[in-house]
Amino acid sequence: MIEVAGLRVVLPPATVALHGIDLVVRQGEFVVVLGRSGAGKTTFLRSLNRLVEPTAGTVRVAGRAITGAGATELRAVRRQIGMVFQQFNLVRRASVLENVLAGRLGYVPSVASVLGRFPQTDLELARTCLAQVGLVHLADRRADTLSGGEQQRVAIARALAQRPAVILADEPTASLDPALTSSIMDILKTINREHGLTLVVSQHQLETALAYATRIVGFRQGRVAFDGPPAAVTPAVVQAIYGDGDGR
């Protein structure tokens, strides 16, 4: 579903964030990306939909190359990739429903959408997606009046509205109360199980990662330090991913 080959990212001015990553994610996998902050987790996720421009290498999602794609093709591939962010990134002043509808932007005619016109089927789909995260009763509320946990669920609904093949989630629970972590991760797990959606989620909490993932990928200093099932994560593996605390 996601094929990454030789992915190298140099961030300006000269920070090598990723040193040639090779990774294949199969359909229906729930991959959790682990690593210290600065290990390259966020850069990796953001280069999968080219929010970060890869310096070298190729990324293919659902059989289509996103690296090297022109503007139109890039948007067409991005539609297939839902993304959930640590800071939710909702449009704060817009309503919850409008935020979810934004997930349809890749499908609707540009000019009509700018005037605020969406097809009836998209409105229904947006409500369905809100129902999936249990927030259909808040559809007309302004996004910034919701709690953090609710905002993140709206963000998941927005990603679902894209009818994506893949959802990327960059530390989706890091800005939330620890008690809310499982509610968000449970929703992601349900999406993964019931809809067969492929998930790539970065996490800094090891226990959470092990509880939800079908596969763990550990990043260290821009390289894959571990790749395997949660059951194979031994103390030695944890040491390999996180090091011994001095950061080297």
């Binding site: 939909n49 962010f85 990134n89 909702l90 934004a102 932007l105 927005r158």
Partner: peptide
């Protein structure tokens, strides 16, 4: 943030 999010939808 919101600009990233909207970009990521394929807008």
């Amino acid at each position: 943030g919101p600009v990233d999010a909207i970009t990521a939808t394929g807008a």
